[in-house]
Amino acid sequence: MSFLDALLYSLAGMAVVFFALVLLMCIIKIMTAVGDRAERRAAPAAAAPAAAPAPAPADRPLAPGTAGEVKLYDTDPRTAAMLMAIVADEMQAPLNELRFISIREVKEN
């Protein structure tokens, strides 16, 4: 094969690579635009019920999927949330399937 032929094959190869990836780029852009439009259409429908005033709860309800309330002793809610997430991760179990009774900070004397 001559150098000129090789050069032409190289140019054709680069053109094919660019064509394939530009085609993909266009497809992704179309996919994103279609997805965004669908989301925008769904947004007003979802916003309408949300706009209605929610009835005030008689008592503070538990979060959906929660497995009861946890009592905190000398522990702030942020630390407690972090500890529960770590325990759930270590046990490979969903957080809402675990029941925490209480979290207490152990202080050294």
């Binding site: 090789a6 094959y9 190289s10 190869g13 394939a20 990836l21 993909l24 992704i28």
Partner: peptide
């Protein structure tokens, strides 16, 4: 998606080496 263009441009190495291997 513009990243795809960079992925395409970096294939220059394939064709540069091909050209040198022959030429």
């Amino acid at each position: 998606p513009k990243s795809l263009l960079l992925g395409a441009a970096a294939q220059l190495g394939i064709f540069a080496a091909f050209l040198m291997a022959i030429g």
